[in-house]
Design a protein around this nucleic acid. Structure first.
Lengths: 210, 210
DNA sequence: AATATAACCGGACCGCAGTCCGTTTAGCAT
DNA sequence: ATGCTAAACGGACTGCGGTCCGGTTATATT
């Protein structure tokens, strides 16, 4: 069923070999991967995310179209690859970083702070994030999304939310989805601070109601 | 650029015929509209929503492909047309219907009830709802979505939520989006009652925190 | 160095949503 | 009836994401 080999890893058994992140595999494959990522960034910078079509990318990078899909699986996979640095940095902040986003602050404060950070992050990498989401059924099951969801769930638990924290994290996470946030800002002209403020209200009430 | 192209020679008046309700216009147009809706329902019933492609539909109904797009504007528009009866019935329930979904019950009760009703509705018409959403930028600005959002906002206001009810309605509405609900149920096997229960917790806390 | 082979490569190919434009026709006015 | 015109029609066409498969090449083995 053609799952997407987004990130490195997975070497064992059954399926096709996952896309090599940096090591592993033939040198030309790695070279083409870098070539493609580079060309993709150029196109996005020169025009827009929408201008980044798979054909154009292949041509720009001087490789065949098949190669693009072999490396990234799908357009969404390519977008995730383009985002992966920013995504990793963000993950680092809420896992290892300094409080209040990182560990060390009370859970409610962390919830508020990490939401605000997420909003800012989304507005910065918005177009890419939308394009990365804009596809599949498995959009919620891709590693960064799972990690993010689990983190929210953990913070809710720590804050004393005992009733179905998994679903509650899902519900709260829904409020932070890129498409919605970007729509609020770019169509309705909502100021980013209002988004953060509403998030604060929301999580405060959810936790306080405990 | 590349906004929706306006017909060259003649436009004036009514705008694009994206979704003419029932009357107005030539008889053949109305006939074809019914023909198409009928054929679309057949295809969905025989196979699935995914099997409903615009080419196949045109062929099945015995009309040209251009006609399909002229009538419904896009695939998402067609899906909305297919949903419109169910949508109208649902709207009727929360606007005119009996309490607690309709008017007459206290606002929090209405919020809880209408959310549960929405969840059930979404699970029933899930595939179509997903296909109707699955596209555009304007997905949040389509009349039923606007009405729904406004209704949530109104209930929040009545329940005493004074802080940015517009955005709060948006955040709460996000938790009820078809894609997310369907994913929870069909991938993670969440029971529908758990969804309704979490919604109840969520809105109760939001309103109580007031 | 020669060989074997698995991985990689390219681009033709497919089905799809959506557009364009020359042709036909419904409905009105005469 | 007849003629007129705006509206509707159909299907060829475009560009897209994604797949497939015969040819090519890096690398390990001898």
């Amino acid at each position: 069923m053609s799952l997407i080999p987004i990130r490195p890893g997975a070497q064992s058994g059954g399926g096709r070999p996952a896309a090599p992140a940096a090591e592993a595999g033939r040198r030309d494959a790695a070279r083409n991967r870098e070539l493609l990522l580079c060309a993709a960034r150029e196109i996005v910078e020169e025009s827009s995310v929408d201008a980044l079509t798979m054909d154009r990318l292949a041509q720009r990078a001087g490789v065949g179209k098949g190669t693009v899909f072999r490396r990234f699986g799908s357009r969404a996979g390519l977008m995730m690859a383009l985002l992966s640095d920013a995504e990793a940095e963000f993950q680092g902040r809420f896992i290892f970083g300094p409080p209040p986003v990182g560990p060390g602050a009370p859970p409610l404060e962390r919830l508020i702070a990490v939401g605000a950070a997420r909003i800012a992050w989304t507005l910065e990498f918005g177009e890419l994030a939308r394009a990365a989401d804009a596809s599949a059924y498995n959009r919620f099951d891709v590693p960064p999304a799972v990690l993010w969801h689990r983190h929210l769930e953990m913070l809710l638990r720590e804050a004393g939310v005992t009733a179905d924290p998994w679903l509650m994290a899902s519900a709260l996470g829904a409020a932070l989805e890129p498409e919605r946030l970007l729509h609020s800002v770019s169509v309705h002209g909502i100021a980013p601070e209002r988004l953060a403020e509403t998030w604060r209200e929301l999580v405060t009430r959810v936790v306080a109601g405990q």
